[in-house]
Design a binder for these strands. Structure first.
Ligand code: MN
Ligand code: MN
Ligand code: ZN
Ligand code: ZN
Lengths: 156, 156
DNA sequence: ATCCATCTTCAAGTGAATTGCAAATAGAGT
DNA sequence: ACTCTATTTGCAATTCACTTGAAGATGGAT
C-alpha cells in the first residue's frame, strides 16, 4: 500500500511552489527524492512559520523516519531556490516561511506566548528606502520585528 | 608598576555609565573586581558594536589574560544592568552596544563589508506604534535592520 | 584580621545547525 | 530493462557561540 505523495500538491494553492521547485531541481541537476517530496509537502501543510525540529517531529509522527539532517538540507535547498525565507530569532532558534513573490510582510511577536502576527505597512517600507538613500546605501532587504504583548496575553 | 584602571573613566564621556554600574553592583551585592573594571574600560574604548571575541582578543593583546567566560559574564552583567544591548545577527554572532538612555537608533548593515551605520527615524517609530495598536499589541521593543551595499561597496 | 558570599578560571557541557563518509538511489544514457 | 554514476541519505561526529559546574581566589563587610 504505497502512499501517494505528490498528488496532493495539485490540490493545494501551492502549485506555483511545486513548479518552481521542479524547475529549480531540473536546472541544477538535482534529484526528486521521496524524502524531498514528503518534507516539502509537510512543510507546506504546517505553514506559516515552521520550526525545523517541529517539522522533523511531525514527519516522525506521520511515520516518516527521515534524518534531521535531511530536513535541514531540504529547507536549505528551498532557501537556495529562493522559495523560503529563514527568520532567525535572537534566542538562536529560527523558523522558515514560504517566500511569496510580489508580497512582503513583517512580524509582530508576542513576548509572552510567542504568537506571531504578520503585517504589511507600505508607509514604513517607503521610509526605509528613504533612510537607505540618505546614507548612500542600496537597500537589498530588511527585517522588522515588533515585540510586545498580544491581546490574549495583556496583563489586567 | 601598577596600571591604573578606573581613573580613565573620569576622563571619558562615560561617567554616567560607570556611576550606573557602581550603583548596580552595590545594590545587588556584587563585587568590583579588577577583571570587571578592565573589561568594561576596554568595552567602552571599542564602542560601538563590540563583538565578545574581539573584546577578548583586544584584552589579550593588552596583556590581560582573562578567561573568555569572564568576558561573556561581564557583558551579561551589563545587559542585566540595562547598560548594554545585545544585537544578535542571523549568523549566530552578536555584538554589544552601550544602551544610551533616552535615545534609540536602528541599523543599516552593509552586506558586503559588514559595516554598521546607525540611524534614527521618528516617523518609522510612530508608525510601528500605530501598527502594534491596530493589532491590539502593547509595543515593548522592536528591531529594524536594513541590509544593503554601503557607498564604499557600491558596484560600479 | 577574619570570614564568607561572590568571582574567576578552565574544562566540560549545550543546542541548533552543518559536515564527512559509506551505502543507497534517481534518472540519464544505452 | 539494465548500467552507470552523480546525487542523496542516514548517522555520527563536528562546529560554533555561548553557558555552566566546580574548586580555589578574592572583595569587602564586620
Ligand atoms: Mn511571516
Ligand atoms: Mn548601534
Ligand atoms: Zn501572547
Ligand atoms: Zn560596505
Amino acid at each position: 500500500m504505497n502512499k501517494k505523495v505528490q498528488s496532493n500538491s495539485d490540490e493545494t494553492p501551492y502549485k506555483w511552489f511545486w513548479r518552481a521547485l521542479d524547475d529549480y531541481l531540473v536546472k541544477n541537476s538535482l534529484k526528486q527524492t521521496k524524502q524531498r517530496k514528503v518534507i516539502v509537502q509537510e512543510f507546506l501543510a504546517m505553514n506559516p512559520h515552521v520550526d525545523a525540529e517541529q517539522l522533523f517531529e511531525r514527519l516522525r509522527k506521520m511515520g516518516y523516519y527521515f534524518g534531521l539532517a535531511t530536513v535541514y538540507r531540504t529547507l536549505n535547498l528551498l532557501k537556495d531556490a529562493n522559495l523560503v525565507d529563514q527568520l532567525a530569532f535572537s534566542d538562536g532558534r529560527s523558523v522558515f516561511e514560504v517566500n511569496t513573490p510580489d508580497s512582503h510582510h513583517d512580524h509582530l511577536i508576542c513576548t509572552h506566548c510567542r504568537k506571531v502576527v504578520e503585517f504589511e505597512n507600505e508607509e514604513i517600507e517607503k521610509l526605509q528606502l528613504k533612510v537607505a538613500q540618505h546614507y548612500g546605501f542600496s537597500l537589498e532587504s530588511h527585517r522588522l520585528d515588533l515585540f510586545g504583548r498580544c491581546p490574549d496575553c495583556m496583563p489586567v
